[in-house]
Protein backbone atom coordinates (compact mmCIF):
# COMPACT_ATOMS: atom_id res chain seq x y z
CA UNK A 1 0.00 0.00 0.00
CA UNK A 2 2.77 2.35 1.05
CA UNK A 3 4.79 1.36 -1.98
CA UNK A 4 1.86 2.06 -4.26
CA UNK A 5 1.30 5.47 -2.75
CA UNK A 6 4.97 6.33 -3.19
CA UNK A 7 4.92 5.18 -6.80
CA UNK A 8 1.98 7.38 -7.62
CA UNK A 9 3.45 10.42 -5.96
CA UNK A 10 6.76 9.94 -7.83
CA UNK A 11 4.83 9.62 -11.04
CA UNK A 12 2.90 12.78 -10.30
CA UNK A 13 6.04 14.61 -9.31
CA UNK A 14 7.72 13.83 -12.61
CA UNK A 15 4.58 14.86 -14.49
CA UNK A 16 4.56 18.13 -12.61
CA UNK A 17 8.26 18.69 -13.27
CA UNK A 18 7.95 18.06 -17.00
CA UNK A 19 4.83 20.21 -17.17
CA UNK A 20 6.59 23.06 -15.39
CA UNK A 21 9.47 22.88 -17.85
CA UNK A 22 7.07 23.21 -20.75
CA UNK A 23 5.36 26.19 -19.12
CA UNK A 24 8.70 27.80 -18.37
CA UNK A 25 9.75 27.27 -21.97
CA UNK A 26 6.73 29.27 -23.12
CA UNK A 27 6.74 31.96 -20.47
CA UNK A 28 10.48 32.57 -19.90
CA UNK A 29 11.32 34.14 -23.27
CA UNK A 30 8.30 36.41 -23.00
CA UNK A 31 9.16 37.52 -19.46
CA UNK A 32 12.81 38.09 -20.30
CA UNK A 33 11.75 40.21 -23.25
CA UNK A 34 9.47 42.25 -21.00
CA UNK A 35 12.26 42.71 -18.44
CA UNK A 36 14.74 43.73 -21.13
CA UNK A 37 12.42 46.40 -22.52
CA UNK A 38 12.41 49.73 -20.60
CA UNK A 39 8.97 51.20 -20.03
CA UNK A 40 9.86 54.40 -21.92
CA UNK A 41 10.65 52.33 -25.04
CA UNK A 42 7.18 50.77 -24.91
CA UNK A 43 5.74 54.23 -24.29
CA UNK A 44 7.46 55.69 -27.30
CA UNK A 45 6.38 52.74 -29.44
CA UNK A 46 2.82 53.31 -28.25
CA UNK A 47 3.12 56.97 -29.23
CA UNK A 48 4.55 56.15 -32.67
CA UNK A 49 1.74 56.69 -35.23
CA UNK A 50 3.42 54.24 -37.62
CA UNK A 51 3.26 51.48 -35.02
CA UNK A 52 -0.32 52.30 -34.03
CA UNK A 53 -1.62 52.33 -37.57
CA UNK A 54 0.19 49.06 -38.20
CA UNK A 55 -1.48 47.44 -35.19
CA UNK A 56 -4.86 48.78 -36.30
CA UNK A 57 -4.27 47.41 -39.80
CA UNK A 58 -3.29 43.98 -38.46
CA UNK A 59 -6.34 43.67 -36.24
CA UNK A 60 -8.66 44.95 -38.94
CA UNK A 61 -7.31 42.65 -41.65
CA UNK A 62 -7.51 39.60 -39.38
CA UNK A 63 -11.03 40.60 -38.33
CA UNK A 64 -12.32 40.82 -41.92
CA UNK A 65 -10.59 37.55 -42.74
CA UNK A 66 -12.39 35.89 -39.82
CA UNK A 67 -15.84 37.31 -40.52
CA UNK A 68 -15.80 36.47 -44.24
CA UNK A 69 -14.35 33.01 -43.57
CA UNK A 70 -17.02 32.34 -40.94
CA UNK A 71 -19.81 33.18 -43.40
CA UNK A 72 -18.49 30.64 -45.87
CA UNK A 73 -16.75 28.22 -43.50
CA UNK A 74 -19.51 27.57 -40.95
CA UNK A 75 -21.94 26.14 -43.52
CA UNK A 76 -19.12 23.93 -44.82
CA UNK A 77 -18.40 22.78 -41.28
CA UNK A 78 -22.09 21.90 -40.84
CA UNK A 79 -22.09 19.96 -44.09
CA UNK A 80 -18.98 18.03 -43.02
CA UNK A 81 -20.47 17.26 -39.60
CA UNK A 82 -23.81 16.02 -40.95
CA UNK A 83 -23.47 14.59 -44.41
CA UNK A 84 -21.60 11.59 -45.71
CA UNK A 85 -20.63 12.09 -49.32
CA UNK A 86 -17.99 10.63 -51.62
CA UNK A 87 -14.71 12.52 -51.24
CA UNK A 88 -15.52 13.69 -47.74
CA UNK A 89 -12.17 12.61 -46.31
CA UNK A 90 -10.42 14.33 -49.21
CA UNK A 91 -12.25 17.55 -48.30
CA UNK A 92 -11.15 17.15 -44.68
CA UNK A 93 -7.53 16.67 -45.78
CA UNK A 94 -7.71 19.75 -48.02
CA UNK A 95 -8.98 21.85 -45.12
CA UNK A 96 -5.94 20.87 -43.06
CA UNK A 97 -3.50 21.65 -45.89
CA UNK A 98 -2.76 25.27 -44.84
CA UNK A 99 -1.56 24.00 -41.46
CA UNK A 100 1.14 21.78 -42.94
CA UNK A 101 2.53 23.79 -45.86
CA UNK A 102 5.21 26.41 -45.11
CA UNK A 103 3.51 29.77 -44.89
CA UNK A 104 5.96 31.55 -47.15
CA UNK A 105 5.17 28.93 -49.79
CA UNK A 106 1.48 29.60 -49.16
CA UNK A 107 2.17 33.29 -49.81
CA UNK A 108 3.84 32.47 -53.11
CA UNK A 109 0.93 30.22 -54.08
CA UNK A 110 -1.52 33.02 -53.31
CA UNK A 111 0.18 35.16 -55.95
CA UNK A 112 -1.51 32.93 -58.47
CA UNK A 113 -4.87 33.97 -57.03
CA UNK A 114 -4.47 37.66 -56.30
CA UNK A 115 -1.41 38.87 -58.24
CA UNK A 116 -1.65 41.09 -61.31
CA UNK A 117 -3.47 39.30 -64.19
CA UNK A 118 -4.42 36.45 -61.87
CA UNK A 119 -7.80 34.84 -61.32
CA UNK A 120 -8.97 37.40 -58.75
CA UNK A 121 -6.33 40.11 -59.23
CA UNK A 122 -7.31 40.98 -62.80
CA UNK A 123 -10.37 42.82 -61.53
CA UNK A 124 -8.09 45.33 -59.76
CA UNK A 125 -5.54 47.74 -61.25
CA UNK A 126 -2.44 46.15 -59.80
CA UNK A 127 -3.91 42.98 -58.40
CA UNK A 128 -4.52 42.69 -54.68
CA UNK A 129 -0.82 42.47 -53.80
CA UNK A 130 0.11 45.20 -51.33
CA UNK A 131 -3.49 45.91 -50.25
CA UNK A 132 -5.40 45.33 -47.00
CA UNK A 133 -7.64 42.89 -48.88
CA UNK A 134 -4.54 40.98 -49.97
CA UNK A 135 -3.33 40.80 -46.37
CA UNK A 136 -6.75 39.52 -45.24
CA UNK A 137 -6.69 36.84 -47.90
CA UNK A 138 -3.20 35.69 -46.82
CA UNK A 139 -4.32 35.62 -43.18
CA UNK A 140 -7.52 33.74 -44.04
CA UNK A 141 -5.64 31.13 -46.06
CA UNK A 142 -3.38 30.12 -43.20
CA UNK A 143 -5.91 30.38 -40.38
CA UNK A 144 -9.21 29.07 -41.79
CA UNK A 145 -8.58 25.43 -40.72
CA UNK A 146 -8.84 26.51 -37.06
CA UNK A 147 -12.28 27.96 -37.64
CA UNK A 148 -13.67 25.11 -39.73
CA UNK A 149 -12.40 22.37 -37.43
CA UNK A 150 -13.76 24.05 -34.29
CA UNK A 151 -17.11 24.67 -35.94
CA UNK A 152 -17.27 21.09 -37.24
CA UNK A 153 -16.60 19.70 -33.75
CA UNK A 154 -19.24 22.03 -32.34
CA UNK A 155 -21.85 20.75 -34.83
CA UNK A 156 -20.81 17.14 -34.19
CA UNK A 157 -21.63 17.61 -30.51
CA UNK A 158 -25.24 18.57 -31.32
CA UNK A 159 -27.50 15.47 -31.18
CA UNK A 160 -28.88 14.99 -34.72
CA UNK A 161 -32.15 13.75 -33.20
CA UNK A 162 -32.80 17.29 -31.93
CA UNK A 163 -32.74 18.33 -35.58
CA UNK A 164 -34.98 15.36 -36.43
CA UNK A 165 -37.56 16.43 -33.87
CA UNK A 166 -37.51 19.99 -35.18
CA UNK A 167 -38.11 18.67 -38.71
CA UNK A 168 -41.14 16.67 -37.59
CA UNK A 169 -42.48 19.80 -35.89
CA UNK A 170 -42.63 21.45 -39.28
CA UNK A 171 -39.28 23.21 -39.57
CA UNK A 172 -37.47 23.23 -42.92
CA UNK A 173 -33.78 22.24 -42.93
CA UNK A 174 -32.83 25.94 -43.15
CA UNK A 175 -34.97 26.81 -40.16
CA UNK A 176 -33.61 23.85 -38.21
CA UNK A 177 -30.09 25.11 -38.90
CA UNK A 178 -30.78 28.63 -37.66
CA UNK A 179 -33.02 27.76 -34.68
CA UNK A 180 -31.43 24.55 -33.38
CA UNK A 181 -28.02 23.61 -34.79
CA UNK A 182 -26.43 27.07 -34.93
CA UNK A 183 -27.48 28.24 -31.43
CA UNK A 184 -26.32 24.96 -29.88
CA UNK A 185 -22.98 25.07 -31.70
CA UNK A 186 -22.45 28.80 -31.20
CA UNK A 187 -19.90 28.58 -28.39
CA UNK A 188 -17.63 26.27 -30.37
CA UNK A 189 -17.96 28.47 -33.43
CA UNK A 190 -17.08 31.61 -31.46
CA UNK A 191 -14.02 30.00 -29.93
CA UNK A 192 -13.01 28.90 -33.44
CA UNK A 193 -13.38 32.48 -34.62
CA UNK A 194 -11.24 33.74 -31.73
CA UNK A 195 -8.57 31.17 -32.59
CA UNK A 196 -8.68 32.11 -36.25
CA UNK A 197 -8.45 35.81 -35.52
CA UNK A 198 -5.47 35.27 -33.22
CA UNK A 199 -3.76 33.11 -35.80
CA UNK A 200 -4.40 35.77 -38.46
CA UNK A 201 -2.91 38.56 -36.37
CA UNK A 202 0.26 36.58 -35.73
CA UNK A 203 0.78 35.55 -39.37
CA UNK A 204 4.10 36.64 -40.86
CA UNK A 205 5.24 34.26 -43.61
CA UNK A 206 2.35 34.47 -46.03
CA UNK A 207 1.62 38.15 -45.31
CA UNK A 208 5.18 39.41 -45.88
CA UNK A 209 5.16 37.94 -49.39
CA UNK A 210 1.76 39.37 -50.32
CA UNK A 211 2.32 42.79 -48.70
CA UNK A 212 5.50 44.26 -47.27
CA UNK A 213 3.57 47.52 -47.32
CA UNK A 214 1.12 48.39 -45.84
CA UNK A 215 3.03 46.92 -42.96
CA UNK A 216 1.30 44.58 -40.48
CA UNK A 217 2.86 44.51 -37.02
CA UNK A 218 4.60 41.11 -37.35
CA UNK A 219 6.20 42.42 -40.56
CA UNK A 220 7.14 45.67 -38.79
CA UNK A 221 8.84 43.72 -35.98
CA UNK A 222 10.87 41.90 -38.62
CA UNK A 223 11.69 45.10 -40.54
CA UNK A 224 12.82 47.00 -37.42
CA UNK A 225 14.94 44.05 -36.33
CA UNK A 226 16.58 43.95 -39.77
CA UNK A 227 17.11 47.70 -40.15
CA UNK A 228 17.69 48.96 -36.60
CA UNK A 229 18.38 45.93 -34.43
CA UNK A 230 16.95 44.04 -31.50
CA UNK A 231 16.18 46.99 -29.21
CA UNK A 232 13.91 48.71 -31.75
CA UNK A 233 12.10 45.53 -32.71
CA UNK A 234 11.54 44.57 -29.09
CA UNK A 235 9.44 47.56 -28.05
CA UNK A 236 6.99 47.00 -30.92
CA UNK A 237 6.85 43.26 -30.18
CA UNK A 238 6.11 43.86 -26.50
CA UNK A 239 3.39 46.37 -27.32
CA UNK A 240 1.70 43.95 -29.73
CA UNK A 241 1.86 41.12 -27.20
CA UNK A 242 0.38 43.28 -24.43
CA UNK A 243 -2.55 44.35 -26.59
CA UNK A 244 -3.12 40.82 -27.90
CA UNK A 245 -3.07 39.25 -24.42
CA UNK A 246 -5.47 41.90 -23.07
CA UNK A 247 -7.84 41.27 -25.98
CA UNK A 248 -7.75 37.52 -25.73
CA UNK A 249 -8.35 37.56 -22.00
CA UNK A 250 -11.41 39.69 -22.69
CA UNK A 251 -12.60 37.34 -25.44
CA UNK A 252 -11.96 34.28 -23.27
CA UNK A 253 -14.13 35.80 -20.57
CA UNK A 254 -16.82 36.43 -23.15
CA UNK A 255 -16.67 32.86 -24.40
CA UNK A 256 -16.71 31.58 -20.79
CA UNK A 257 -19.91 33.51 -20.29
CA UNK A 258 -21.34 31.81 -23.38
CA UNK A 259 -20.24 28.50 -21.86
CA UNK A 260 -21.93 29.27 -18.56
CA UNK A 261 -25.10 30.17 -20.40
CA UNK A 262 -24.76 26.97 -22.39
CA UNK A 263 -24.25 24.93 -19.21
CA UNK A 264 -27.27 26.53 -17.61
CA UNK A 265 -29.21 25.50 -20.69
CA UNK A 266 -27.84 22.01 -21.09
Amino acid sequence: MLLEKQKISWFHASLTLLGSLVLLFIVAPLISMFLATPAEDIGSAAADPEVLSSIALTFKAAFFATIVSALAGVPLAYLLARKCFPGRSLVLAIIDLPVIIPHSAAGIALFGLIGRNSLLGRFFDNGLVGTTAGISIAMAFVSIPFLINSARNAFLSVDPRLENVARTLGASPVRVFFTISLPLALRGIVSGMILMWARGISEFGAVVIIAYHPMTTPVMVFQRFNDFGLKYARSVAVLLIVICVALFVALRLFSCRLKQQGDANA
Binding site: D159, R161, L162, N164, V165, A166, R167, T168, L169, G170, A171, S172, I180, P183, L184, G262, N265, A266
Partner: peptide
Amino acid sequence: AASEKRNFAVVYQDYCLFPH
Protein backbone atom coordinates in the same frame (compact mmCIF):
# COMPACT_ATOMS: atom_id res chain seq x y z
CA ALA B 1 -42.53 13.78 -48.92
CA ALA B 2 -40.33 15.96 -46.70
CA SER B 3 -40.50 15.28 -42.99
CA GLU B 4 -41.79 18.77 -42.18
CA LYS B 5 -44.71 18.35 -44.60
CA ARG B 6 -46.05 15.14 -43.04
CA ASN B 7 -47.15 16.41 -39.64
CA PHE B 8 -46.24 13.14 -37.92
CA ALA B 9 -44.81 13.92 -34.48
CA VAL B 10 -41.94 11.89 -33.00
CA VAL B 11 -41.25 11.47 -29.27
CA TYR B 12 -38.01 9.74 -28.34
CA GLN B 13 -37.17 7.70 -25.26
CA ASP B 14 -34.71 10.30 -23.97
CA TYR B 15 -37.07 13.21 -24.68
CA CYS B 16 -34.74 15.21 -26.98
CA LEU B 17 -35.89 18.58 -25.67
CA PHE B 18 -34.08 21.58 -27.13
CA PRO B 19 -31.62 22.39 -24.33
CA HIS B 20 -31.26 26.08 -25.21
